[in-house]
Amino acid sequence: MIKLKVNGKNQQFDGDPEMPLLWFLRDELNLKGTKFGCGFGMCGACTIHLNGKPTRACLTPVSAAANASITTIEGISPDGSHPVQVAWQELDVPQCGYCQAGQIMSACALLAKNPKPTDADIDSAMNGNLCRCGTYLRIRAAIHQAAELKASAATKPAKAGAKASGAGTNFAPRKSGKQ
């Protein structure tokens, strides 16, 4: 029986100890934010924090996380209010968005130890995270912006894009989608 903490909650696992943490998080705990990209430690889409250190979940057996504290993208804030998440939304960083959870996890780890990184610091910390859409310039800008947000400690509320509450039914009663 392997015991570990994920996003502050105690969890346990008694399956194949060689199974990568990625699949434990995604398919056992239903935390889908951590992504599978290469299974080979090449792309960084599966980046999580293991005892605070950015780590590739696709190459880390669950056994290697025994008694460790894991943080995933779902655990860095309850509501998307972490300065990195806020900056990402404000600068409209994502294109497809698939790599971004891993990018954000690497960025959070960088800012935790280096609150005012230079471009070179950022490049060095982020070079293991690939973005197939090529959003690197915005990622770099968002990390600088997050550093400023953190420094001013006056995090502005996130702009939630075009989301609004309330479902429309009056004008066009929706049918069941079948033809």
Binding site: K32, I73, P94
Partner: peptide, 28 residues
Amino acid sequence: TTNDVENKDIVTGKPIFGIDVTVPGMLY
């Protein structure tokens, strides 16, 4: 400029991609 409507779901790791789909009784 309008920001991507799914940005918040993306940055908070919501299950919005194909790989994230889960159906009751699903096998792999």
